[in-house]
Write a protein that binds this DNA or RNA. Structure first.
Lengths: 269, 269
DNA sequence: TCACAAACGATCAATATCGATCATATTGCA
DNA sequence: TGCAATATGATCGATATTGATCGTTTGTGA
């Protein structure tokens, strides 16, 4: 077996399992301990993995970020106050007992903070949202079935026949990557899939976007403006953008980030 | 077992419940007390956990007492060592890459500890199992859709058309409330529903029950003995019970008790 | 307070892993 | 083919990790 091939095998093994032993690699490649050690040493200086006594481990230092405690950690702090304010307005649209759908996303995730005292049937495809609601609220939580995609933090089934089709709600809440005259835009094909499944399962589609999203474009269009019932954004929205929504018959709610944000911060602490 | 792997297991265990004992880690990793103490000491200086007399505790002070903090809190400590030993045998049946189904339950939950280093497609209807696997392993996690029942800690859909039907596995693992000549017995109608959905989605049905379950009866029969491929239990099983399984053509695996368990038994005697 | 058991820390022997060296095999090239 | 360069495998002393066994400390309950 050639050196390159062994390296490929070792790297693939170390990506699948967090730690591999020298012995495992010996068995896997039919080469000697010495060779494997040399390989691991070489890959170590190439920074393709980290060498540890007994074997090697994956190099990725950010191990379990993304879930639970701090979902979507990267985007989280970005415009957090604005997202908070938008999410609050979204929850205030809801009445206790009224079923809703929450699509996964960083903005919609903020809704969980305002849902703690409520009691509603909530359907979501987001693992972190479900987790938070379970632990910190008494809402009835329903989850879509399928594979959990770690990066996007959503649950998606490749099949059309999942429980999603059996849930119907008054409102569905979702974020987006962009919002323009052509409609609602998303960046990730996986998210598009997830959203398309849910979008027809509610009377009203409520879109949560901070005002910067009006100036962002993306390659994938999810639906036209006419499909949207309500847009909630912050006061950074410009007049012509508001006009565009009005023309399309979309209701607009502008969330003010007022002193209420202070409340929220202290509430969190 | 190697240092890194032990560390991963210890950290995973310490997050599952706020405090773990040295003995528990010895059982979990098959290493000596001295080694576990050294490990805990090392992780302590790395600030990955806090060392306390008797074991270690999670570093994060405000642990939410919700779902994950103490899954199935009542049953958890009951026969924990036996359940872990049984769960270990269960995981050892699995090969990397081979898809499995894990039905929710306190015994099956213990399997997560031994799955941390593995890489398999895992389908489950248990939210805590999915959560733990997501946070502490690289396995592909698939979840059934539906309502999350807090008490039973399972996800159940009233419809027959969920993704469950689209997943097929080599083995399905499940616990039970009782196991007698008539077959597998369960107490909760909700669990019966969940289990019946999954039971036909795998080649082999593997049942995890501690030996006390052979003397327990319940009103609801899930399936006959003939449907069961393998039973894993502890060495408290009696001869006639083993005979019963043998007659029915069920393979039997007896998980050996660890040294610490023997201590406990002799103490009780 | 005292006795007792559990938990701890230190030590040491056994084991596993490592690094270096050398012999052998394979490859590339003239 | 012959030769050099490189890769590989084997061996062995050095080093690190582990598990067992002390004696000591800590916590518990009579």
């Amino acid at each position: 077996m050639h050196e390159k091939e062994r390296h490929r095998i070792i790297l693939s093994a170390v990506q699948e399992k967090p730690v591999v032993t020298v012995q495992e690699m010996v068995d896997l490649t039919d080469s000697s301990e010495a060779t494997i050690r040399r390989d691991i040493a070489a890959l170590h200086v190439q920074k393709r993995l980290r060498r540890v006594r007994g074997g090697a481990e994956a190099i990725s230092p950010p191990q379990f970020i993304g879930l639970a405690g701090r979902p979507f950690s990267v985007n989280e702090t970005l415009n957090a106050a604005q997202k908070r304010a938008i999410a609050r307005e979204a929850v205030e649209l809801c009445k206790d007992g009224e079923p809703i759908i929450i699509n996964g996303g960083t903005t919609t995730f903020q809704m969980v903070h305002f849902l703690t005292g409520r009691r509603m049937p909530i359907f979501t495809n987001s693992f972190p949202i479900a987790e938070h609601l379970l632990k910190h609220s008494k809402n009835t939580v329903m989850l879509s079935g399928g594979t959990i995609y770690r990066e996007q933090n959503i649950i998606l089934s490749p099949f059309d026949n999942d429980v999603t089709r059996n849930f119907y709600a008054r409102r569905m809440f979702m974020g987006a990557q962009g919002l323009g005259p052509l409609g609602l835009m998303e960046g990730d094909p996986l998210l598009i899939q997830a959203e398309q499944k849910l979008i027809d399962q509610a009377d009203e589609l409520v879109v949560l976007v901070d005002s910067s999203k009006f100036r962002k474009r993306s390659s994938l269009i999810l639906c036209g403006l006419s499909r949207i019932a309500t847009v909630i954004t912050d006061d950074g929205i410009e007049d012509r953008e508001a006009k565009m929504l009005e023309t399309a018959g979309v209701a607009l709610i502008v969330a003010r980030k007022t002193a209420s944000n202070k409340e929220e911060s202290s509430l969190q602490a």
